[in-house]
Design a protein around this nucleic acid. Structure first.
Length: 428
DNA sequence: TCTGGGGTCCTAGGACCC
DNA sequence: TCTGGGGTCCTAGGACCC
């Protein structure tokens, strides 16, 4: 069977999500900020035209914001996750073979569909998502995922394609003409470092890259680089992945809304991060052996004393029981906390993860942080159930605190129209 | 005043074993 | 003075992605 993939990529996704429930934002410059209202992580086309780069700190574009009346939003992940889900569900109405690649992107296997024109199918996909969900997407269709990415790039830069480009059945020569216009840095899998390296060998365009010596590419970019090159030639070697593999590590970390100095404040923050990470751990039916806690000062403040450190605690037997992890996390924090520093960020990393049905129990567990009572799994399941039904933090742990004065800034968040009754869309 | 968060894969090199 | 060969496992670091 011929391999044909489609890459569906939501345009300026977070901005588009804001526009779904606030049509006044249409055709206006809009940015969405990262956590703690720090950087621009989504920009409308109007903002991109003003020269604002991805990841640009908000404070650096303050003048532009005022001058061009840019609408600024804190990120509203609950809303974005829900809209993303709707986009993906719509894709499943075309084919069961969907790989959800990220919150705003998916690959679909079109090879199993009998269609007369891939271009037409692409346009249908685009229209259905726009009609049903309200988010504009770009569609790139090609025999390999890497070429899909290229097709998508072109679509985004050239409005005349009306959102869809299929490289299928395009003669090799015509594809080469396109590749000559795409810089190596725009190839999926070629980042900043490899761009520098390739440029230094005289390889500038995707065309140059495609026609370089494969042995040489493998040597300087490992096996992944070789795969990328092969895919550019139209030979698929990165397959669709339908099942989401279990995470091997789970991280929860945040910058603080204000600098913290005391152990008590940090311990509360860490306790919250542990709670988030262990909920994720249980949601994939896993347990972990290790927990790492890290803290750091503000690396951008060169006039402040800098410090960062981490400590890893290893349990005697795998656990996913939040209180175990909170105790171990607090202990880890106590190992690295130093007074006299101004802390900006902390986080928790859970690793050595295994499926909860395959854990190796120890006969005599002497771990001072692990509770060994019989009903712990049952209890924590009930808590997860209640939080799932009535919303996050319905049942929570005392050590997580109530005021949470360290919470990241989120001063311009829109309402959670689709996931929170109190914030449902009001027509006035 | 103000600078995000969460992942994956690959390789080289060291420790250790027989 | 001479100082094997082959294998595994683990970790740190570097690259990438969105």
């Amino acid at each position: 069977m011929k391999k044909i993939f489609a890459l569906i990529d939501c345009n300026n996704f977070y901005v588009s999500c804001e526009r779904v429930f606030n049509p006044k934002l249409e055709n206006k410059p809009v940015v969405v900020l990262s956590n703690n209202d720090g950087c621009c992580v989504a920009r409308s086309n109007e903002v991109k035209k003003l020269g604002v780069k991805m990841g640009e700190p908000l404070f650096k574009i303050k003048d532009l914001v005022t001058k061009h009346k840019i609408e600024v939003f804190s990120s509203n992940y609950e809303l974005y996750a829900d809209i993303s889900n709707r986009v993906m569900q719509t894709l499943f109405t075309f084919s069961p073979d969907v790989e959800v690649y990220s919150i705003d992107e998916a690959f679909v296997n079109l090879g199993s569909l009998s269609v007369d024109s891939y271009q037409k199918t692409g346009l249908e996909i685009r229209k259905r998502i726009l009609d049903w969900v309200g988010v504009p997407v770009s569609v790139g269709i090609a025999p390999t995922k890497t070429l899909c990415k290229i097709a998508n790039e072109i679509v985004k830069k050239n409005p005349e394609y009306k959102g869809v480009l299929s490289l299928t059945d395009m003669p090799e020569k015509e594809i080469d003409v396109i590749l000559k216009k795409i810089e190596v840095s725009d190839i999926w899998g070629v980042g900043r470092q490899y761009t520098k390296k390739l440029n230094s060998y005289g390889i500038y365009t995707s065309y140059d890259f495609k026609h370089s010596n494969p042995e040489f590419i493998k040597k300087i970019m490992t096996i992944q680089g070789l795969k990328t090159q092969t895919e550019l030639k139209g030979i698929s070697c990165i397959p669709l992945e339908y099942e989401i593999p279990d995470k091997k590590g789970i991280c929860s970390s945040r910058s603080f809304g204000r600098p913290l100095t005391t152990f008590t404040e940090l311990r509360e923050a860490v306790s919250n991060f542990v709670s988030i990470a262990s909920e994720k751990l249980r949601s994939q039916n896993s347990k972990c052996l290790r927990i790492t806690v890290f803290i750091q000062t503000n690396r951008f403040k060169s006039n402040e004393k800098q410090y960062s450190n981490s400590y890893t605690y290893e349990f005697q037997s795998p656990t996913s029981y939040t209180p175990d992890l909170i105790k171990a996390g607090s202990f880890a924090l106590s190992k690295i906390f130093r007074t006299g520093y101004i802390y900006k960020k902390a986080g928790v990393f859970i690793s050595e993860i295994q499926n909860e049905n395959q854990v190796q129990e120890v006969l005599f567990n002497m771990d001072i942080f692990q509770y060994t009572g019989p009903k712990k799994d049952f209890l924590i399941r009930e808590i997860d159930f209640l939080n799932g039904k009535f919303g996050n933090n319905t049942v929570t742990f005392g050590s997580n605190g109530f005021k949470k004065s360290w919470k990241p800034k989120s001063e311009k968040r829109s309402d959670r129209y689709t996931t929170c009754f109190a914030e449902i869309l009001k027509i006035t």
